[in-house]
């Protein structure tokens, strides 16, 4: 029996450059049997690898309601993500997973939702957002607040119109100075734009993902707006190697982000030791 560390093989079907350094890959498993069996939930992740360069963790970027392919959006910042970026359509990479817990989408039924995504954090929220779009009648008012440093750094630009048509109010913002000619979105940091929207806490769930500094100010804004820590859900990232609770590096206190997360409520995150 192959060890848990031996990945499935997946072929790159197509690629799309989201920004100068962010690319979305569409993958198809080489083995038809694996393609049938490999199922995931919104929020789960996998170990993606380039043979000779190593493995790295990325969230599955598409919803399990769209299972024909596996999609992954990554910024080329490290050794493995750089190597993945250098692969072309037709080439093969390794995928093992799915790992981790998931967004509790069933508990969101009938509620109003706000997705707040900063930068590449949008990649982790695309799967639950697509899930909501594909089960749109189950949910109330849905808002996506997506921000980036500049217009050029916004991802999934080509999909926003379809999301809007699908019943999601899409609000995009860039940091002051990041706007470009013809920009018709907001200008301002995500927490400020969130406060301007004046979305009340009643019957609403907020799903947040972004860099640590954004999360910090976003949670302050949410608290100010009257949201309880239980109403706020986030997905964390930490350096991982095994993905299955063994290698020891993604831990925050007693919690293994890979095994116990990556999805946590803000109530859980607040109780963590400040080791992340």
């Amino acid at each position: 029996m192959p060890s848990a560390f031996q990945p499935h093989l997946a072929r790159i079907v197509s690629t799309r450059d989201e920004t100068p350094d962010v690319r979305t890959l569409r993958l198809a498993f080489v083995e038809p049997d694996v393609a049938r069996r490999f199922r995931w939930e919104p929020g789960q992740f996998a170990e993606f690898s380039v043979f000779g360069s190593g493995e790295s963790v990325f969230t599955m970027a598409n919803s399990p309601t769209r299972p024909e392919y596996l999609e992954c959006t990554m910024r080329a910042v490290g050794k493995v993500s750089g190597a993945i970026r250098s692969l072309s359509v037709g080439q093969v990479l390794g995928v093992r997973g799915p790992y981790g817990n998931r967004f509790p989408v069933e508990t969101w039924r009938g509620k109003d939702l706000v997705f707040v995504a900063g930068g590449i954090g949008m990649a982790a929220l695309r799967s639950p957002l697509q899930f909501v779009l594909d089960n749109r009648a189950d949910f109330g008012d849905v808002v996506l607040l997506n921000g980036a440093r500049s217009v050029a750094d916004l991802v999934y630009k080509d999909e926003m119109a379809a999301w809007q048509d699908g019943g999601v109010r899409v609000i995009r913002t860039v940091d002051p100075g990041g706007e470009a000619t013809g920009w018709d979105g907001e200008v301002g940091l995500l927490p400020h734009v969130f406060e301007r929207l004046a979305l009340g806490p009643d019957g609403r769930i907020v799903i947040v993902c972004g860099p640590p500094i954004m999360l910090h100010f976003m949670f302050l804004a949410l608290e100010k707006s009257g949201f309880t820590p239980e109403q706020v859900v986030t997905t964390m990232e930490n350096k991982m190697k095994c993905g299955i609770g063994l290698c020891g590096r993604c831990t925050i206190g007693r919690v293994f982000v890979c095994r116990d997360g990556p999805v946590f409520t803000w109530a859980q995150v607040r109780a963590f030791p400040k080791d992340f």
Partner: peptide
């Protein structure tokens, strides 16, 4: 432990090796 590839882009091995939580690189993000 760590999981790393040894070899080239054409052939090699994926290995696991002892690692240490006392190393700075252990938890450093990309």
């Amino acid at each position: 432990f760590d999981v790393t590839d040894t070899g080239s882009a054409s052939c090699g091995e994926r290995c696991r090796s002892w690692d240490s939580c006392t190393f700075a690189a252990f938890t450093r993000h990309a």
